[in-house]
Computed example of a mutant assay.
Amino acid sequence: MHTTAGNWTEPAPWLPSQVPVSLLSTNGNARQFDTTHGPQERTYPEPSPESLLEAYRKMVLGRRFDEQATALARQGRLAVHPSSLGQEACQVGAALALRATDWLFPTYRDCVALVSRGIDPVEALTLLRGDAHCGYDPVRHRTAPQCTPLATHAAHATGLAHGERLKGADTVALALVGDGATSEGDFHEALNLAGVLRAPVVFLVQNNRYAISVPLSAQCAAPSLAYKGIGYGVRSEQVDGNDAAAVLAVLTTAVEDAREGGGPWLVEAHTYRLAPHTSADDPSRYRPAEEAEHWRGRDPITRLESALRARDLLTEDGIAAAAAEAEGYAADLRTRLAEDPALDPLALFDHVFSAPPAQLTAQRAALRTELEEH
């Protein structure tokens, strides 16, 4: 599995599979868990039944969370919400592939990955509510603040992964990026640095076909975004991003290979954003309705549910239990976000410096005095 930079003579081990890795058929039934695929026949270990059931539970919960967040944005409780409807397999797969000691670097669209990592849903939506730049403790959750500028966090993931390795830790960093981010200079700089350093970092590109309204065909002429890795000495792969079993299999392999010294990975997940770019967007202006309908037939939750039922791993009771848990989750989120936030003006000075300079300390004291007087 491992190849040392500068020592390889053939590109084949570094190139992605010619066909995206897929373990489930479109409806989850026709092909159950076929772990060989494509001309290269690269294999990945089949995820355990327990991990697939956990993925299903988190995907159902994540979708209901996403639907509720979209409704809250329409009600004015959130300033905006970038839905991840249809991308649940990518985000849940990323969260489950990591250990608690690993680091996740999310974008603004990755709230489902945040809640799948165990972050409180209200804290996950604090940024979109406008209450703070980051509503959760990044160190406690080993999850960086959500990144709105495209790809700037990719270099952060590389740096953290390299730094952790220098400290002797076996930490892996996983950066979530979109297809539009692969056209940014920061993305290429991060891959180049990761390849040179052999950093234990995985870049997961959620290729949902559009960078806001710009289709993939107008962004890149490569046969696949995954091919961008080989130019930097980064092992690459492409996977069916709506196949939860395949996403989990590939990402788990990538994360553990990076942890063991195999170097960085670039994984392109082919998926689709069923919802608008954000709650303020009208996708009918730039994509045909029949395209979205085609992708609804590849729904990641339906595919996994069908496969689990076919293998007698999931019953009607299990489906009902997951739905009930998700509904309770959404109800709790509605209740808590209906309350006005308790804001402390002095918090403006928190998390600016580890050791605040005298000028900032004086400004904080002056504000405290003013608040007490009024």
Rank of each mutant, 00 (worst) to 15 (best):
A258D: 05
Q238H: 01
A30L: 14
E372N: 11
P138E: 07
L78S: 07
A366N: 04
A169R: 14
L360P: 04
L78I: 09
E10T: 15
Y56R: 06
P45Q: 14
L52V: 09
N7C: 02
E339I: 00
G233K: 05
R140T: 13
G93H: 12
L225V: 05
E268S: 05
G118T: 02
V92N: 11
K228D: 03
T182F: 04
G297F: 01
R165S: 11
F203I: 12
E256K: 03
L313A: 06
V122A: 14
D66V: 07
S183Y: 00
C134T: 12
L308N: 07
A310C: 05
V196P: 01
A254F: 06
L348E: 11
E370W: 03
D102W: 09
T143K: 02
D243N: 11
G231Y: 05
R109M: 07
V214M: 15
V60Y: 00
P276Y: 10
P20D: 05
S236I: 00
E325N: 06
G86P: 02
D344F: 04
G6L: 08
L266F: 00
R57E: 13
V177F: 06
G185H: 05
P215L: 12
V112C: 04
Q363V: 00
L61N: 06
L274Q: 15
H270V: 12
I319Y: 03
A323H: 14
V201Q: 01
T252R: 09
L114M: 06
S25F: 10
R303V: 13
A221Y: 01
D179S: 09
A280Q: 11
T9E: 12
R57Q: 13
G86Q: 04
V21R: 04
V177H: 01
L176F: 05
T182I: 07
F187T: 01
S116V: 08
